[in-house]
Amino acid sequence: MITLWQAVLIALVAVLTELDGNIFGENKMREPIVTGFLVGLILGDVTKGLVLGAQMQLMWMGATAIGPTAGLDIGTGGTVGAAVAIATGTGLESAIMFGVPVSVIMQFVNTLLMAAYSGVMLEADKAIEQLKITKLTALHWMCVLLSAIKTFVLIFMLMYLGGDLIDAIVGGLPDWVSSGLNGIAALLPCLGFALLMSIIMDGSMWPYFILGFVPAAFVGFDLNMVGMAAVAVAIALIIWQIRSEQQVVAAQTVAVADDDEWED
C-alpha cells in the first residue's frame, strides 16, 4: 500500500521527468534507470528499483520520437511501472502492464496540452515584437507550471487513490496473463535494441560496433578465434574506410587542380 507522502514523492519524481529537457536541460532524469532508483528510494527498496529501472531501460532504449512520430512518455511510464511493481511485490510483468499504457496515455495528454499552448505562442510572439520581456517570461513559466501540475495531479491520483484498484488488478491476474507478460518482458529489450540500432547504425559504424561488442561479449571468458577474427575484420574495415576516404580526397584535389589549369 502506498502512503500519502509516498504518493506525493512519486508524483514529484514524475514532475521531475516532465521538467527534464524543458527547463533543466537534457540531464536524462526521465530515464527508467534513474526513476527506478528514485522510486525504490521512496518505497524502501532501492535494489529492486534499480533492477526494474535497468530492465525497463533496455525495453525503452529505442523509444525515440523522430520527426512527426510521437514518442512515449517514458518518464512517467517508468516511474509508475517501478512504483506498481515494488508496491505490489511483483516483477517486470506488472511494471510493463502499468508502465506502457501510462506512457502512451501521458504522451497523448502531453500532445493535447502542446496543442493548447499554440494560443499562448501567439501571445509570446506579440510580446517579442513589443519587447515585453516580463510578459514573455510569465508566459513561459505559466506553461511550465501547467505542465508540472498536470503531471503531478494525474500521477498522484493514480498512485494514492488507485492503490486498491492496482492491488486488485495485480492480485487477480490469471497465470496465463502473467506468463504472457513475462514473455513480453523477455522480448521487448530485443525490440528496444533493434529500434536503437536501426536509428544510429549505418555501414560506416559497423567496425566500431564490432570492436565494442567483442570485449563486452567475452568479459570473464578467454578470447577465442571467433572473437579475434571479428576484431581483425573490424580493423580491416576501418583501414579500408580510411584509405577510401584518402582516395576520394586525392581525386577531389586533382579535379580542383585541373580546373585551375583550365582557368589559367
Rank of each mutant, 00 (worst) to 15 (best):
G89I: 09
G89W: 02
G89H: 04
T90D: 03
T90C: 04
T90V: 05
G91K: 01
G91F: 02
G91P: 01
G91T: 04
G91N: 02
L92R: 04
S94Y: 02
A95S: 11
A95D: 09
A95T: 08
I96D: 04
I96A: 07
I96W: 01
I96E: 09
I96Q: 06
M97Y: 14
M97V: 10
M97A: 14
F98L: 09
F98P: 05
G99P: 00
G99A: 10
G99H: 07
G99V: 11
V100L: 15
V102T: 06
V102Y: 00
V102D: 02
S103C: 00
S103L: 01
S103G: 02
V104P: 06
V104L: 14
V104K: 09
I105K: 00
M106Y: 07
Q107E: 10
Q107S: 11
Q107H: 03
Q107P: 01
F108P: 04
F108L: 14
V109K: 05
V109H: 05
V109D: 05
N110F: 02
N110L: 01
T111G: 11
T111C: 06
T111S: 10
L112E: 01
L112I: 00
L112N: 05
L113K: 03
M114C: 04
M114F: 07
M114G: 04
A115T: 09
A115V: 10
A115F: 03
A115G: 06
A115W: 03
A116V: 06
A116K: 13
A116I: 09
A116F: 07
A116N: 09
S118I: 13
S118W: 05
G119N: 13
G119C: 09
M121L: 03
M121K: 01
L122T: 11
L122S: 14
E123V: 08
E123H: 15
E123R: 15
E123K: 05
A124C: 13
A124I: 09
D125F: 15
D125V: 13
D125R: 15
K126T: 08
K126S: 15
K126A: 14
A127H: 03
A127S: 12
A127E: 02
I128A: 08
E129Q: 13
E129V: 08
E129G: 14
E129F: 13
Q130W: 12
L131D: 14
L131V: 11
L131Y: 12
K132I: 10
K132T: 12
I133D: 06
I133S: 10
T134F: 03
K135Q: 12
K135E: 14
K135A: 13
L136G: 10
L136C: 06
L136W: 05
L136A: 12
T137E: 12
T137A: 09
A138S: 09
A138N: 08
L139R: 01
L139C: 01
L139S: 00
L139Y: 05
